[in-house]
Design a protein around this nucleic acid. Structure first.
Lengths: 133, 133
DNA sequence: GTATATTGTCTGGATACACTATACAATATG
DNA sequence: CATATTGTATAGTGTATCCAGACAATATAC
């Protein structure tokens, strides 16, 4: 059971899917700083894609400050300093959030269910906030 | 001030951005069934893109059942029957939701703020549910 | 200490995609 | 009846995505 699961038929490119799901894991603290991520070839075989596709994803995550990517060494997780958000990021998030919820509803997911799932994630975030304190 | 705002520099293609934001408006009931949407050329000029790009977006929305797209007549909003969600849609929504929230947090938006925004949208949805009843 | 395996990177190429330019034809409009 | 308007169809262009294969320094096994 691979850590990552991607959809080869999705319109969003594979390397971006990898970035998105890995980033979610990293934000959640699924990997401790200093931990080694599986090699690009391991992930590639796991997902059934070329290793260059995974390498591109790792490169983007390294640019974001999540990974230390060294040749012959592999990818190690970094302790990433918190970023300073520009105000536009928040509006952007809200718009995408609305669009995402709208598509779920359009696809037939019940409004109440969507609301419930949103609330659940909100609770999760509040909890994880407390854990740090 | 155009109804739609898109980002020409975004990795997500313009026609898909149009679909996503228009769908959000349609789900929210911003357009009554029978209403006429602006023509593809109007929207195109508004956004500074070719009208074929807008036409592609309208076509996708018509496929989803939102629009009645008739040549020489324009695009009219349909009363769309509610869909029956496959179970996978819900998991998909949750994963994308997590990824979206993770990126906002990674970009520096505070966790509590993200949680607050999620909760706010959840409340909105519950309210709009009640309105129908 | 030496040979081999492992690692992310680089180059090149094939294919698909996003977007544009332009023409089209039936309907609306005056 | 003449003209403007509408979504559509076709062709072309630049770019993005993904793959194949080679590369070189390090890590690993003996």
């Amino acid at each position: 059971m691979p850590i990552l699961r991607i959809d080869l038929g999705s319109p969003t490119p594979v390397y971006r899917q990898i970035v998105d799901s890995l980033r979610a894991l990293l934000v959640n603290g699924a990997f401790a700083p200093g931990a080694r991520l599986p090699t690009v070839r391991e992930v590639a075989i796991d997902l059934g894609v070329n290793h260059n596709t995974v390498a591109e994803a790792y490169r983007l995550l390294a640019e974001e400050g999540w990974l230390d990517l060294k040749r012959y060494h592999g990818a190690t997780v970094l302790q990433r300093p918190p970023q300073q958000a520009e105000p536009a990021r928040q509006e952007d998030f809200v718009q995408r959030l609305r669009e995402l919820a709208a598509r779920a509803i359009a696809d037939g997911v019940d409004k109440e269910e969507v609301a419930q799932l949103l609330g659940a994630l909100a609770e999760d975030l509040k909890q994880s906030k407390k854990e740090i304190l």
